[in-house]
Simulated assay, not measured.
Amino acid sequence: MSKGVSASRPGPRHVAFIMDGNGRWAEQRGRPRLLGHRAGARRVREIVESCPELGVEYVTIFAFSTENWKRTQAEVSGLMTLFRRYIESEAQTLLKQGTRVRFIGDRLRLDKKLRGLMDMIEALTAHNVRCHLTIALNYGGRDEVARATKRLARDVADGKLDPDAITDETLPRYLDTHVLPDPDLVIRTSGEARISNFLLWQSAYAEYEFVDTLWPDFTRAKFEEVLDRYGSRDRRFGGVKA
């Protein structure tokens, strides 16, 4: 299908990616792991560019987790440099493509220059509506829920929120993703079948696809194959057909 979805069912509005396998892709070629991360960044460009044509309005990518600080200092430093260069090199392209960029995660541990670049590209693309790209940077699902709970607790303590009025619709207003729809589809590359602390609250009813392809090899064609499979799924959200 040209749109990458079933003709009889709508495709996902929001797709989230756990972009796994960059390091292994490089190691399989006898190259440094950072080379794989650079190849992965180029793949991000292709996938994001394809989203509007495939009917995907929102795309969220897991770029760096709260657990990734455990990697070697050289790899972490290289990744931070890569993030800065990605923003600097892609900002004008994303602006012209009509892509709005947002970041989620705890920014406090990130260096000042990177935080400034994040603020810059968010402001630069703030009026774009063709595609919404969210980058999870220093992000962890449990950390996000903990930070959201602290903000909610402060509002209760300040008398701004009645504890008895709290429902399952209250906490999402305090999450990093409060302006985004929940993901319809979460794709993890590289053959690993776990969610790795990614969008824990938001993905309660998301469909999951675990594909063997390493992220740098995850082409638009492979993306369309996953979207086709999504189109064949019966999403009941806990209900049954009448």
Rank of each mutant, 00 (worst) to 15 (best):
M1R: 11
S2H: 11
S6K: 01
G11R: 04
R13K: 14
M19R: 00
D20C: 04
Q28F: 03
R29Y: 07
G30K: 03
P32K: 05
A41K: 03
V44C: 01
R45G: 01
E49R: 12
E49P: 03
G55D: 06
E57W: 06
R71N: 00
Q73W: 04
E75A: 06
I87K: 01
A91K: 04
L94T: 00
L95C: 07
Q97K: 13
T99I: 15
V101Y: 01
V101S: 06
V101N: 00
R102G: 05
L108Y: 08
A123F: 06
A123G: 02
T125D: 05
H127P: 01
R130T: 15
H132E: 13
G140E: 02
G140Y: 03
G141P: 01
D143C: 06
K150C: 07
R151Q: 11
D155H: 10
D158A: 15
P163C: 12
A165C: 10
T167K: 02
E169T: 11
T170D: 04
P172L: 11
D176V: 09
H178W: 11
V179F: 11
T189I: 08
S190E: 04
A193L: 12
I195A: 05
W201D: 07
Q202M: 13
S203Q: 05
S203R: 02
A206D: 09
Y208W: 13
E209A: 15
T219C: 10
K222I: 09
G231S: 10
